[in-house]
Simulated scan of single mutants.
Amino acid sequence: MTETPISSRDNSLFKRLKKLSESARARRGAQMTLLDGEHLLAAYLDAGGQPHTLVSASSFDVGRFRALAGRCPHAKTIVLTDALFAELTPVATPTGVLSEAAWLMPPPINATPLVLVLEDIQDPGNLGSMLRTGAAAGATLAVLSKGCHDPWSPKALRGGQGAQFVLPLECGVDIPAWCALFEGQSLALALGEDRSVFARDLTGPLAIIVGNEGGGLSHKVRAAATATVQIPMPGKMESLNASVALAIAMFETVRQRSG
Score class of each variant (00 low, 15 high):
residue 118 L to D: 08
residue 105 M to V: 14
residue 42 A to P: 11
residue 51 P to E: 04
residue 156 A to F: 01
residue 167 L to G: 03
residue 87 E to L: 13
residue 53 T to C: 12
residue 96 G to S: 00
residue 85 F to A: 12
residue 96 G to Q: 06
residue 92 A to W: 11
residue 131 L to I: 06
residue 36 D to G: 02
residue 32 M to E: 15
residue 162 G to A: 08
residue 141 L to N: 07
residue 123 D to N: 13
residue 111 A to W: 01
residue 114 L to K: 06
residue 124 P to L: 05
residue 129 S to F: 06
residue 47 A to Q: 06
residue 166 V to T: 15
residue 42 A to E: 14
residue 127 L to F: 10
residue 105 M to Y: 15
residue 139 A to I: 03
residue 108 P to G: 08
residue 92 A to Y: 10
residue 47 A to K: 01
residue 147 G to L: 02
residue 50 Q to P: 08
residue 77 T to G: 03
residue 89 T to I: 03
residue 120 D to Q: 02
residue 58 S to I: 12
residue 154 P to V: 03
residue 160 G to K: 08
residue 36 D to T: 01
residue 59 S to V: 03
residue 78 I to T: 08
residue 33 T to P: 10
residue 149 H to N: 13
residue 70 G to A: 14
residue 140 T to S: 04
residue 142 A to Q: 03
residue 133 T to N: 15
residue 107 P to F: 10
residue 68 L to N: 12
residue 127 L to I: 10
residue 115 V to R: 01
residue 49 G to F: 10
residue 98 L to H: 08
residue 58 S to P: 07
residue 47 A to C: 03
residue 103 W to R: 07
residue 130 M to D: 08
residue 140 T to A: 05
residue 55 V to I: 14
residue 67 A to T: 13
residue 30 A to N: 12
residue 140 T to E: 05
residue 149 H to S: 14
residue 85 F to S: 07
residue 29 G to Y: 10
residue 149 H to R: 15
residue 31 Q to W: 13
residue 113 P to W: 10
residue 93 T to P: 05
residue 143 V to G: 00
residue 149 H to Y: 13
residue 59 S to K: 11
residue 107 P to Q: 08
residue 67 A to W: 09
residue 81 T to S: 12
residue 36 D to S: 11
residue 35 L to F: 01
residue 102 A to M: 11
residue 146 K to V: 13
residue 78 I to P: 07
residue 104 L to I: 09
residue 41 L to F: 04
residue 32 M to R: 15
residue 136 A to E: 04
residue 147 G to I: 04
residue 91 V to N: 00
residue 57 A to R: 12
residue 139 A to M: 02
residue 83 A to D: 15
residue 93 T to S: 09
residue 104 L to P: 05
residue 54 L to Y: 00
residue 108 P to H: 07
residue 117 V to W: 05
residue 73 P to G: 01
residue 159 G to R: 05
residue 53 T to E: 09
residue 146 K to D: 12
residue 155 K to D: 12
residue 67 A to C: 08
residue 101 A to M: 08
residue 115 V to S: 00
residue 102 A to E: 13
residue 145 S to L: 00
residue 159 G to P: 04
residue 108 P to Q: 04
residue 69 A to M: 02
residue 122 Q to M: 13
residue 93 T to V: 15
residue 40 L to K: 09
residue 85 F to K: 06
residue 39 H to E: 14
residue 118 L to N: 02
residue 152 W to G: 00
residue 148 C to A: 11
residue 98 L to W: 10
residue 56 S to H: 11
residue 123 D to Y: 07
residue 155 K to S: 11
residue 143 V to I: 14
residue 82 D to Q: 06
residue 147 G to F: 05
